[in-house]
Design a protein around this nucleic acid. Sequence first.
DNA 1: TAAATTAGCGCACAGTTGTACGCTGAATTT
DNA 2: AAATTCAGCGTACAACTGTGCGCTAATTTA
Lengths: 203, 203
Amino acid sequence: MNRQQQKRQTRQRIINSAFTLLDENRSLTAISLREVARAAGIAPTSFYRHFSDINELGLTLVDEAGLALRQLMRQARQRIASGGSVVSISVDTFMEFIVQNRNVFRLLLREHTGTSSAFRAAVMREIQHFTEELSDYIVAHLRLPRKIANLQADAMVRLVFNAGAEALDADVKEVEQIADRVKIQLRFVQLGAVSFNSSNPGL
Amino acid sequence: MNRQQQKRQTRQRIINSAFTLLDENRSLTAISLREVARAAGIAPTSFYRHFSDINELGLTLVDEAGLALRQLMRQARQRIASGGSVVSISVDTFMEFIVQNRNVFRLLLREHTGTSSAFRAAVMREIQHFTEELSDYIVAHLRLPRKIANLQADAMVRLVFNAGAEALDADVKEVEQIADRVKIQLRFVQLGAVSFNSSNPGL
DNA sequence: TAAATTAGCGCACAGTTGTACGCTGAATTT
DNA sequence: AAATTCAGCGTACAACTGTGCGCTAATTTA
């Protein structure tokens, strides 16, 4: 078999194994090189053939998580295009994603407030994409000034991610309740932004 | 010297040392018993005279952090009583607290999404106090129905804590900007809740 | 076919961890 | 004054960590 292929395969096995280890009681900084190697079925020292560091693996995982997140956005956009309440569809899509990619989202959440500033920064970049895209949408469809739209989008993304955090530990029924709650809260923000804009024009 | 006193003193030294270790790159689960003992100036094994476990120390720290948080609330209430914008005063008080108790707040934030479900639960309880108190305030002063007030308070607390998280890594100037931003976002939520209540009476 | 590259391995080492055990000396109680 | 309690210590051990080093065997290149 091809050598590069083989190597890429092993590398992917390392990444997947790492995600598997990121369950409800482990963070990126809490998994050890040896553990990952064990899970991937390679010798500890072979790890270095793929990553110079366990931190490099960490950043790779954050990247992969970001990728998944962008796929989520794309999916939400498609669903929105085919009609329905934007907020409702977005939240539902988001929650669906979380339930199906628990560990991926867990990674983002944990490292968002985690102990490594490099990881924190990497996660914030990924979330920023979300906020920017939402902001564009608000400007285009709700016709609010950029400044207000940015604040609105920022608040909304924060609320949704917070809800997602809660959903991680919740069962199906609870996830539904959380989704309903955040939908109303997002409605608050939206109505409030419009109202604020009316009474503070140009600010 | 009194023996109980002496012991309480050592115990407090352990707690303080632990807080010191919780800087920007360490979480509760990442500090070791030996490290804490070293910082507190006792032998590793002496630790067990005070806590049965490092987890027990962790829960104690969360409790202490919660205590500090409630003091913060009291302080905010006092300042509000002497006049001024409620939101503005609350946010400023909160930010002031964070800057002055970085590690205490860091602890709460980290463990809120951390790897120990026991810690997560403990932190959520503390935050819940905040939300409930704010909810009461909203019902009393803004005359919104309980249901709406709960949702509003929940959203507001989440936004404020999120802003606090950002403030942890920020300098004085940036903290001010963050505070300004969240104040407007809180205004959104408040206006939106009122507006929502008008158009959905009784829901 | 011969030479070079390299993914993966085993061994080794020093450093860290939690914690069991028994001792000591001082404070407290009797 | 004698007996008891107990905070703190030192030693010890097994388990784990990251990583340096040199080997092997298979693929790739020349």
